[in-house]
Design a protein around this nucleic acid. Structure first.
Lengths: 327, 327
DNA sequence: CTTTTTATGTCAACCGGTTAACAGAAGAAA
DNA sequence: TTTCTTCTGTTAACCGGTTGACATAAAAAG
């Protein structure tokens, strides 16, 4: 509104800045990227022109040339879940602090969506992908050279996976229920056909049960499973749910049936996200170190992007048992 | 691993496909974009070459030329919040279904972050921005020509704002507490200095209170505010919190003080996101039509992107009162 | 056997930056 | 005054696609 003729409608470009400052395109580029010799006077002139014209360098053009976008693709089931919401928050935060942006993909655990997202991310030339979705194998063969890191999901033979120490978490949860005197402990988990490190929670549960001469009994989450569990096992007195949302459903159903928690039934979940802790503080749970997971995942990805190789594939971070009122 | 020489290391490009298929660059481009005359035979040859070489068109190069990225920037405080998590999920979903991708920005309500994100999104040539962050004015002057839509936040004089019918929600919540016999009703809200449509919740509260000859009393959320409220108002028997997380804190504090809900104190929140409903089903609340809000916001943004103008600025979507056990 | 339609090719400009190469001018040091 | 730094400019190639102009060949229609 103040100046002459340039910013009528078209986007301001490098040339316009050069003209305004009375220098060449090259000089402007040098100022903006701090390369070569530049006098203070010219630097100032250029910066003033940038200000005046409200110039924003076209990162697309830049990306094309330098063959790098500084964009990371995130593929997760959904932000509408306290654990993933928190994880994605931290991932984005860390990326941002390191100069990377984040393209968000909600796969909803659907193989077709994940596939098309993957294709899309490649087309968009993302520098790398962090995925915490299902479906081993999809990412694998399609995708030989793009830097990849998995969170709680195996993606291929040699892509790093970051997860909480699921086995230890499962052990701690089961042991707690046993210590609290539960006799009939049932485990509820996601589909074990998804080969995820989270299956170790169940494995630990089974091992601990057997060690203590108990009979392990697992149900896979699904329609009406919780009702079924109560119907088939009226004597159940301990439930280890493989995530907090399932645990909360268990609590709801117990309440409906007038089963007193923790007197008659003890419940422990898994995840311990901030939101669950806030809305359901009475739930005992195994808390994952979300921020540390995010941190490590990003660091491992950037290492790959920078061409460094890392031989370690599996990374396990320690969990934290939170004992609250449901046990 | 199967083929000849092309895919040793370098990314496959249009030229490689053209060579492989024995046609020209132009022809490949025509096949991929369905332009001009192409025989079935050539189309097939090209597609086979694309398959064989595992070619992914470089969207960056394409974007540069067509001057459009099909990327939408999302600026919200954090995905680590049930309401925003759900909103962002839907926004991404709708964008995806319309061929747009989403760059995620967690502003954490910080003015400096929002500013630098805005700058970043412009550099990345996003086609538009949907923002639900604080700070009226920031987006305004910096940003005259980029298509913008606000969710529950005024961004400038003439950027569309989509929100739930906050006034009606505030009215319904307050009226419910009155109907249930509450005599001393307190409202807790976010900082009113942020000029957001959410302030209408408070306005409605005050209006309804006055209409009923009650004295309206609002507190701004902050450190220890909830304790203060109970300390200063031992006779409080109704609380209308301007979001569900605050309501849950109120419930927690009431429990600590052995105040029985709903017998001695009735509580109602605002938002009614899926996660809160799941983890805290007993909380009465005003539910926002999250998916519809997302839908409308995206539609309004795309209209702007396509150059259509829309005179309506404020869009209010109906809320839904959920009466549960806390009232 | 023409004429028209359909199919394909070559060529070059373009999108908006970066960068290397080379040249020349001003200022400081010898 | 001469030489060496430091500063700035011009030019052109390049990143990987898209697109319009123009030419030509084959197939279909008249």
């Amino acid at each position: 509104m103040n100046n002459t003729n340039e910013n009528i409608n078209q986007k301001v470009k490098l040339d316009d800045v050069a003209n305004e400052a009375g220098v060449s395109k090259t000089t402007v580029s040098r100022v903006l990227n701090n390369r070569g010799y530049i006098s203070e006077k010219t630097r100032k002139k250029v910066n003033e022109a940038v200000e005046l014209l409200n110039y924003h360098p076209n990162e697309i053009a830049r990306s094309l040339f330098i063959n790098k976008t500084f964009i990371i693709g995130l593929i997760f089931p959904t932000t509408n879940n306290p654990f993933y919401g928190q994880l994605i928050f931290h991932l984005e935060n860390i990326c941002e602090s390191l100069g990377y942006k984040v393209l968000l993909c909600n796969s909803e655990g659907r193989e077709d969506k994940e596939k098309s997202y993957l294709e899309m991310l490649q087309r968009h030339q993302v520098d790398g992908i962090i995925a915490g979705s299902h479906n081993r194998g999809i990412l694998e063969y399609d995708n030989p050279q793009l830097p990849l890191v998995g969170i709680d999901r195996y993606l291929s033979e040699n892509t790093p996976v970051v997860s909480s120490d699921n086995y230890d978490g499962g052990k701690k949860a089961t042991q707690l229920l046993i210590d609290k005197g539960c006799k009939k402990i049932i485990h509820i988990n996601g589909s074990p056909s998804l080969e995820t490190p989270a299956n170790l929670r169940r494995e630990a549960y089974e091992d601990v049960m057997k060690e203590n001469q108990y009979y392990p009994q697992s149900y896979v989450i699904g329609e009406n499973v919780i009702e079924t569990i109560f119907n088939e096992n009226p004597d159940v007195d301990g439930i280890f749910a493989s995530d907090d949302l399932i645990a909360s459903s268990v609590m709801k159903e117990a309440k409906r049936r007038n089963i007193n928690i923790p007197a008659d039934l003890k419940v422990i979940g898994y995840d311990g996200s901030e939101i669950t802790r806030m809305l359901l503080p009475e739930l005992s749970t195994i808390q994952q170190p979300v921020k540390e997971i995010a941190n490590l995942a990003v660091r491992l990805l950037l290492k790959q992007i920078e061409g460094e190789t890392e031989s370690q594939i599996e990374w396990k971070l320690p969990v934290n048992l939170i004992e609250s009122e449901t046990t």
